[in-house]
Every structure is written in C-alpha cells, then in structure tokens.
Design a protein around this nucleic acid. Sequence first.
DNA 1: CAGTATCCCCGAGGATACTG
DNA 2: CAGTATCCTCGGGGATACTG
Lengths: 126, 126
Amino acid sequence: MTVRNEQLQGIPGTTAGIFPAACPSRTVLDHVTSKWGVLVLLALSREPHRWGELRRGIEGISEKMLAQTLRTLEGDGFVHREVQAVIPPRVDYSLTARGRELTEHLLPLMGWIDDNAAEILAPRVD
Amino acid sequence: MTVRNEQLQGIPGTTAGIFPAACPSRTVLDHVTSKWGVLVLLALSREPHRWGELRRGIEGISEKMLAQTLRTLEGDGFVHREVQAVIPPRVDYSLTARGRELTEHLLPLMGWIDDNAAEILAPRVD
DNA sequence: CAGTATCCCCGAGGATACTG
DNA sequence: CAGTATCCTCGGGGATACTG
C-alpha cells in the first residue's frame, strides 16, 4: 500500500493513487480493524484467555462473530489457539509473536482514544 | 473503556468485562476504524487534500462514503474543512491538531502492516 | 465448555442521477 | 468542482438451537 511516510505525497494528480484497492495492506487492515478485531487483540494483549472469558469480556460480541474474528486472526498468524484434551473442553487463545508486534502499535492507539474519547464526543450525543 | 495497561487484566471471572458495550472509546474507535476512516486520515496525514484528490486517491471509495467519513471525522474534530468562495468551488480538507495526534499513532501501525502484509497473507489466497 | 449450523434482518455501503 | 438525493443490494452480523 506504500503508506511509508516518504511516499504519502502520492494523492494529487491523476496518478494511480496511494491507496490501491487491491493490495495486501488493505486486506490486513480490514482484518485488524474489523468490527471486533481490535477488541479481541487487545483483550489477548495482556494475557491468554479462554473462549468463554472472551465471550463475556468483550461485551456485545456474538458467538458467531467471536469465532469468525478468532479464526481470521489465527489465519493471519496473530493469534494462537491451544486445545486441551480434557473434559470439559478447554481452549486457550493467546497472541503469537507477530500478534504482539501488532498490539504494540494498537495499545498506544487505544490508550490515546481512551484518554480523549470523552472530550471528542463531548458536545454531541451521536 | 479502560484499556490502560494496568487494567487490562479485567476479563476473567464474571465481572463486568473490560470492554463495556456503551463507552465513548468504542464509539470513537468505530469512527476511526470504520471502513474508510483510517485511509482518509492517513491520506490527510501528510498534507491537505481537495475532495477530488481524495476521491481519486482512495481507490474504491464512493462519493457517499467519502462525504460520510469526512463528516464524521470532522464532527470528531479530527478533520478541518475549509471552503474557498471561488468558482469553481474549492474545498480543502486537512487534519486538526487532534487529528495529527491521532495519526501519530496510526502511521506506525500502518507502517508495520504495510511492511508485513505480504508475509502475513503469504500462504493463503483469502 | 467450546464451539457449529441455520435462519434472518437490517443497515452499511455502492451506483446513478442530479444540483449550486 | 463538490457535493446531495435516491434507490437498491448484499453480506455483515445477531439470535437461536443444537452437538462433541
């Protein structure tokens, strides 16, 4: 996607544009910034969690979306899924090294949003 | 949303959960990570752009979504809209100070995604 | 407990036409 | 040029029921 700073000047003119529709970065960005992606990644950023913990902790997420989000993030190599052969079943989700690299960038972002959200939405109801 | 690192341990147990459904952070996060939010913000992060530049530069965005995204980001105080009273009309969009604070966190994130996207998607078609 | 399977709906979002 | 207005589609995503 060539978002590197030196290349961000690309927009003006009729040239191809700095954000081509079909590029790997857009795909990964969509996975990460999907409706529940960031929340799941952040939930796992501190410590591993079981399915049920995530289900309850990430308020509002449905089982379907939790499963789908986890599978996508696992497919991208951000999340590690570990099944324990016990009864009742126990499955733990944790971040991979790659996932930790990613959340290193997500955490400051969410921290800033968290710090500023109230003021940002202050005058409006929205 | 209490994403602050010290508080991220909240998930286990039956407690309220670290990601309550109704909190300002979730709203702002949704705005920023909306389908086109990050792309618009990054496009403006280097320099101001006119409507048409954004329309062409952010490949695949429709006029409706560009207008909607810009209005939301303007409403959140991330984007400044400046109309020039000339014919033909000219409107410039730029980041506010708050918008620049935000993109300071977005840029490293997208930089990392950009650097790793190909490898992340490597084995699959997806 | 940790999911899948199904059904279904609503609204995000695209296409097109039009306007100041 | 910089948008709005309108219509319409499609799939994201929720609810529920079920299973190993």
